[in-house]
C-alpha cells in the first residue's frame, strides 16, 4: 500500500489500484456522513477531483493520486458512510482505477515515509 501527502492510500493489484482515505484523514474528518463517488468509466488524471467526503462539520475534496479509468465505486458507502470511519483502509475504500502509468504508484510514499510525514504535522 502506498500513500499521498493528501492522505489517500493506493493499493495496486495487477493494473488495478484501490483508493481510499487514510485512518488519519478519517479521524480528522470525524463522523463521515456522505461520500460522493464518480461513476465507473470516468477517466481521471493525477490531481483532478475524484470524490467528495463529508462529515457533519467538514466537506473535503479527494483528488486522484494516479491517472486512469474508474472501474468500480464502493456502493456500500452510500448506505453506510460510517464504514469510512470504521475501516478506512479496508471496507471503506472509495474507487478502483485501472491505472495508465504504474510509475505514478511507485512515486508515492510507503508506510514508513507516510508515518514519518504524519510525524511532521
Amino acid at each position: 500500500m502506498r500513500f499521498t501527502k493528501d492522505h489517500e492510500w493506493v493499493d495496486l493489484v495487477g493494473d488495478t489500484a484501490t483508493i481510499g482515505i487514510t485512518a488519519y484523514a478519517a479521524e480528522q474528518l470525524g463522523d463521515v456522513v456522505f461520500v460522493e463517488l464518480p461513476a465507473a468509466g470516468k477517466t481521471v488524471k493525477v490531481g483532478e477531483a475524484l470524490a467528495v467526503v463529508e462529515s457533519v462539520k467538514a466537506a473535503s475534496d479527494v483528488y486522484a493520486p494516479i491517472s486512469g479509468a474508474v472501474t468500480a465505486a464502493n456502493s456500500e458507502l452510500a448506505d453506510n458512510p460510517q464504514t469510512v470511519n470504521d475501516a478506512p483502509e479496508a471496507g471503506g475504500w472509495f474507487v478502483k482505477i485501472k491505472i495508465s502509468d504504474p510509475k505514478q504508484v511507485e512515486a508515492l510514499m510507503d508506510i514508513h515515509a507516510y508515518n514519518a510525514f504524519l510525524g511532521t504535522l
Partner: peptide, 12 residues
C-alpha cells in the same frame, strides 16, 4: 446537511 452551505463550503 450544512456542509452544502457557505459557512463550511465557503467558495464551493
Amino acid at each position: 446537511l450544512s456542509t452544502r452551505e457557505q459557512h463550511i463550503r465557503r467558495d464551493k
